[in-house]
Design a protein around this nucleic acid. Sequence first.
DNA 1: TCGTAAGCGAGACGGTACGTCCCGTCTTGAA
DNA 2: TTCAAGACGGGACGTACCGTCTCGCTTACGA
Lengths: 186, 186, 186, 186
Amino acid sequence: MDAGLPRRSDQIFDAALTLLAEGGYQRLTVEGIAERSGVHKTTLYRWWPSKDALLGRALVESRLLDVEMPDTGTLRGDLEHLVGSAVRLLTAPATAPVIAAVLAGAGEHPALAGHARAFFADRLGRERAVVDRAVARGELPPDVDAMLLFDLLGGAVWVRVLLRRLPPDPDTPARVVRAVLHGLSA
Amino acid sequence: MDAGLPRRSDQIFDAALTLLAEGGYQRLTVEGIAERSGVHKTTLYRWWPSKDALLGRALVESRLLDVEMPDTGTLRGDLEHLVGSAVRLLTAPATAPVIAAVLAGAGEHPALAGHARAFFADRLGRERAVVDRAVARGELPPDVDAMLLFDLLGGAVWVRVLLRRLPPDPDTPARVVRAVLHGLSA
Amino acid sequence: MDAGLPRRSDQIFDAALTLLAEGGYQRLTVEGIAERSGVHKTTLYRWWPSKDALLGRALVESRLLDVEMPDTGTLRGDLEHLVGSAVRLLTAPATAPVIAAVLAGAGEHPALAGHARAFFADRLGRERAVVDRAVARGELPPDVDAMLLFDLLGGAVWVRVLLRRLPPDPDTPARVVRAVLHGLSA
Amino acid sequence: MDAGLPRRSDQIFDAALTLLAEGGYQRLTVEGIAERSGVHKTTLYRWWPSKDALLGRALVESRLLDVEMPDTGTLRGDLEHLVGSAVRLLTAPATAPVIAAVLAGAGEHPALAGHARAFFADRLGRERAVVDRAVARGELPPDVDAMLLFDLLGGAVWVRVLLRRLPPDPDTPARVVRAVLHGLSA
DNA sequence: TCGTAAGCGAGACGGTACGTCCCGTCTTGAA
DNA sequence: TTCAAGACGGGACGTACCGTCTCGCTTACGA
C-alpha cells in the first residue's frame, strides 16, 4: 500500500499494542517497544518520528479495531449488531485497553487524535451501506442524517461504557436502538 | 470539604489550570506549576501525591465545569440549552483543554477517573429535575429512561466534537434534541 | 577555594582520571564516570557542562601533576631535577596516560587545551623562583628569558618522550641541561 | 607505494582533510567524508579499517606537511629557516588543525602514532644534512648531538605554539636559535 | 512568652525516557 | 561477482521531568 516498513514491523507493532494494552499510554515507551520487539531504539526513530506516529500506524496495520458490517435484513437488526460490536470493542480485554489508551492519549496528542478521527471517518463510510439499505427498504427517510444516527448510537455506548463505567447489560443495544429509531418523547 | 490545603492553594490551582489550558496535559509539569505559583516543588508533593491528584482537586475547587440547569418551560428548550452548554464546554478555549486533559488522565489515573465519574453522576442528578418537570407536563412518559436520554444527547455531542472534530454548527442542538425526542426512523 | 562541588566529587574525579588513564580520552565517557563513581549521569551534567569541564576540574583537584620545585643550591642541579621530574611525569604509569590523554584531547577540545595552558602558566610561575635564585647567584644574566629556558628544556623532553618515543635514558637530563645552558655550537 | 586505493581516492582524501581543517578532529566523521566525497560509507570501510587509518593515509598522500630543507650557507640561517617553517606549519590555517588532529589521534591510535613517528624520523634524516654542512664549516663540533639540537629547537616551538599558545612573534626563530647555539647561562 | 512542631523554600540527587549522532556491520539488489 | 545503497545493532550524548531526600528558616500555637 504505502512504502517502507522496517523488516520486523510485525514484532514492532505487536510490541507497541501489547505494551499499550498492558500499561496505558503513559507506560508505552519507545525504549520498551524497542526492547520488546528486539529492535534497536534507533531503528524505531529511523522509521517513525514519534511514538504516536508509530502507534497510529500500528493501529491501522493490526486489524484489531476492524468491525464487520452486518446485513441482517432489518435496520434494527443491523444497528443492534453494530451497537453490540461497539460495546464488545470497548469492553473486550484485548481491545478495551487499546481504545481507552488511544482516546486518552488523543486528548493530549494531536497525532493520535488524527488517527482516531480517521478511524471514525472510515468506519462511518462503511456504516453508510447499512443506512442505504434501510432507506431502500423504506425503514429510514431518504434524507436521514446517517452521521447523526451513528453518533447517537456510538456516543451513548461511549458515555455509558467509558465515562459512566456502567456494568455490561445485554439489553443495552436493543434499548439504545429503539430510542434512536423512535425517540423518547411521550 | 476535606482538610488541609497549602497556603497558596489559589495560586497553585490557577497555575495548574492556566498551564493546562496553555499547553495541554503534556506540558503541564509539576515543576512548571511550582515555578508559576511561586511555590516550591516539594510543597506540591507534600500535599498531593501526583500531578493528577493536584489537577483533580484544582478542577473541583474551580467551578470551571459547572453547568447551570435551565428551566425554559419546555423540554425541548431545556434540552437544547443543555446541549448548547455541553458544546460550549467542549469547545471554549478555557474549558476544552481542561476536559481533554482530564479525560486523558482518567485513562491512566483511577483517581482522576473517579472524579470524572462523580462529575457525571452529579450532573445527571441535577439533570433529572429537567426530566421530572417534563414528565409532569406530559412531555415524556413517566417511565422514561433519563440516563439514556442524557447519554444519547451527551454522547452525540461528545463524539461529534471530540472524536470527529466537526466544526461548530448552531443547528446541532436542535437537530440532536429532535432526533432524541422523536427518533430517526421513517 | 571556589564554590560548589557535588557531594561525591572525590569519587567522581577518581573515576574520571582512572578511566582516562585506562582507556584514553576516547573511552572516557560521562556514563562511565557515572557508573564508576556511583553517581548518576544527571548529577554530572548538573555540575559540569561537559566531559571536558569535569576532566579539567578533576586534573586541578587531584594533585597528580604537581611538581615540587627543587632548591639544590645550583642552577644545574635545579634544572636537572626539573627535567627529571618532567621525564618521570611523562613516563610513570600513573601519570603518563593522563598527560597523553589530556594533550591528545587538547588538540580537539579547546576546553582541555585551556586547562593545559593554565597548567603550564602556573608551572612557569613557580619555576621562576629557580631562575631568580640563579640570577642572584650570578649563574644566569639578569635579563635571561625564563620562559624560553623552560620551553627549551620542557620542549626537548616532550619531543623525545612523546613524539620520538625514545627509550628512557638516565643521561638525558644532564645532556639537555648542559645544552641549554652552554649551547651546542663549536 | 602500497597497493590498492579506491577509484575516487583523491576526492576522499580531499574531503577528509577539508573536513578536518574545517571542524577539527571532532567533526571529522566517516559519514561526513562519505557524503562529501560522493562515496558510500561502506566503501571507506572496505579500504581503511578506521577513520584514523584513512586520515593517516590522506596525510601521507597529500604533501601538506613537507618541509623544504634550506641551504643558506650558515648554520644560523638554516636553523632559523627551519624554525620559521615549523612555526608556520603549526599555525597556518591549512596545516595547524591537521597537525593538532594527528597528534590527537596519535594518543589513541598506534597507527597514527606510527605515522607521526615516521614523519619525525624522516624529517630528522633530512635535517642531518644541515648539521653535516655546519660541521664541515666548523660551526658545530663533529660529535654534536643532531637529534638533541633539533629536539631543542622543535620542542621549544612546539611548547610555545601549541601548549602556551603564544601569539606569533617574528623574533622567535632568531632567539630560539641563538639560545640553542650559545646557551643561556651567564 | 517561648519552645516545639508544622509548613515551607531551597536544591541535590537517583532515576526513566527522550530524541540525536555517529560508529562499524550486515544485507540486498543491480550492473 | 562486485559494490552501490542503506538498514541495522549499538553506544553515548545531552535534556526534561519525575519523585525523594535532607537541610534550615519562619511562623504560629499551646503550655
